[in-house]
Design a protein around this nucleic acid. Structure first.
Lengths: 334, 334
DNA sequence: TTGTATGCGTTATCAC
DNA sequence: GTGATAACGCATACAA
């Protein structure tokens, strides 16, 4: 016996398909008795509504899509986890796709999700081809952007100020006494979070009267971070502190330092960004910046659902990024 | 203008909807010239196929669903990442849902995905209510189970032998000279991976003539692991080695040891399981067992697609779990 | 190669 | 309250 349809249920319960549909979607609009008959039929046939049919007829999918750069590390895991839970609680399914930090791939994924009829979209960062936003606007598809604070009024963003956070990091490192600072940051192209962090740090250095900040771009793996740090530590004047665009890079930098026989933080301070699990277990534990993962996830869920249901565009939200002092930052040795 | 449909494209290109459909799905069956006209129309209208319509008409969704315990840590991230990439390369979208290590929730998620018409399903572990398997069988829905090796012939599994891996760990720890061993393992209920690991370790201890292995169940967070280790180290006879059911728990155990002033591995050896990123950055770096994350992801993609497309159930695959020696295991102090 | 016509499973608009 | 029945957007068998 193939998958049962609404019609099978109707036949089984001795009613029309319309009644079955009502019994499912608006149980109050159906007599108690018939409702029970329908429910029984559904159970015995173990009927599940066909998604395609539902989507086609109701023009809604109860689905929200999210495109994140990667699932390979824990950076987006927490936010996603909370997002998923919050949506599930409202009967909405989350579809997750990844872009591998790649522009074209992200565009394709957005289109794929839109094509699947998602009722709303969660995106990371605001930097992407305008054509995408045009498409979303044209379809009046609600979307919310996480991890940044400036949608320049055009977008609903739920995040934090990467620029300000990076400035804070530099300030703290400066306050600890460091004057020779370098930075490792994720590839900037198409990644406004990385870019803003680099920019903020650069400007803050300038404001503090430090020499131009040396910034090395790196891809997003532990090994890449290690390699970048090794470059920094082997060529040119050696910094006393390295600021990293995320915790994975920072962990890599710790490796590089250790291999060169440098003690962290005595010989070299290293600061991370994100505060993922990993930041607590490195040795020394990473001094880093805590990103409001869970709050972003929860708020994103609420906002996108509000928007979908009320058809009213919600406001942007800016959370604070929090300085987390552990043990990888110390005053420089004399 | 609302979302354009196939008909809009057809009108725009001066052809029939059938031709547009063909131009999209079987471009070779359409004249170069008309194809170009259609493509132009698609572009100017920024048309995207309606998923519901597609699904309804073709009775396929080009979608594979996966239910994993959590996205909150990196344990499943790598496999999922590879899975997603491999599927995407074939034009198939991956839907990810999480169960929070919770039976009921997992069942609900499976049903939700089935309801959405996934063409196939990826599951973690074989332990779940038979009703679920019955439903999948009834619908003849292909599904592949990861992270375990024994589907007892009933299921297609792609994984490794958790029992054997745990035995190997015990053997190695024993070989290092340890005789007082304890274990922290993830909650067993509904988690056959955790259960098998506990079982394997227990039996191996027995075979080696060691006293009954003390096993503490713990939930899956760093903090829980820390707490469990603290219990082990504070009550009863203190072991010289703690075997952990996963790396997160092991990292927690390292914390606990440090807080008690114990040096790892001098005073206490700790062994992890999984070899996620985190395992390399702890101090000391974790001696652990490498799970074939990427191979499982890749093979799962291939197998599920084969099954979907050929309608022939593929074979199960067993990979080896690999011992990874780092620095958290050493002979016990005298 | 292209067009016509039908059906996919559900919801929603009508009558009854 | 309930039952016909018309969309919904697409793929496909069939005809041309």
């Amino acid at each position: 016996m193939p998958t049962p349809t609404l019609e099978d249920v109707a036949r089984h319960a001795g009613v029309s398909t319309a009644t079955v549909s009502r019994a499912i979607n608006t149980p109050d609009r159906v007599q108690e008795q018939t409702r029970l008959r329908v429910e029984a039929a559904i159970k015995t046939l173990s009927y599940t509504p066909n998604f395609g049919g539902q989507a086609l007829a109701s023009r809604r999918t109860n689905t929200v899509g999210a495109v994140i750069p990667t699932m390979d590390n824990a950076i987006f895991g927490q936010a996603l986890q909370v997002l998923e839970e919050s949506l599930a609680r409202e009967g909405v399914t989350l579809l997750v796709a990844t872009s591998q930090y790649n522009r074209e791939r992200e565009e394709a994924q957005v289109r794929a999700l839109v094509g699947r009829g998602v009722d709303g979209l969660i995106l990371i960062g605001a930097e992407r081809p305008p054509a995408i936003y045009d498409m979303l606007d044209q379809r009046e598809l609600p979307y919310v952007i996480l991890w940044v604070s400036s949608g320049e009024g055009r977008h609903v963003t739920i995040g934090f100020d990467n620029d300000a956070a990076a400035r804070m990091v530099v300030q703290r490192v400066y306050d600890a006494g460091h004057r020779k600072i370098a930075m490792i940051v994720g590839v900037n192209a198409g990644n406004d979070r990385a870019m803003k962090r680099a920019e903020g740090a650069r400007k803050m250095c300038a404001e503090l009267g430090l020499p131009a900040l040396r910034i090395v771009e790196s891809s997003y793996t532990l090994e890449a971070g290690e390699y970048a740090a090794q470059q920094i530590l082997s060529n040119g004047e050696r910094p006393t502190a390295i600021i990293c665009g995320n915790d994975v890079l920072a962990a890599g930098a710790i490796f590089a330092a250790r291999k060169l026989g440098l003690d962290v933080p005595r010989d070299l301070s290293i600061v991370g960004f994100d505060d993922i699990d990993l930041a607590r277990v490195t040795l020394p534990p990473l001094t880093t910046v805590r990103v409001p993962h869970r709050r972003m996830g929860r708020t994103a869920a609420r906002h996108i659902l509000d928007w979908i249901r009320s058809d009213q565009r919600p406001d942007s939200v800016v959370y604070d990024a929090e300085w987390v002092e552990r043990q990888s930052l110390a005053p420089p040795a004399m």
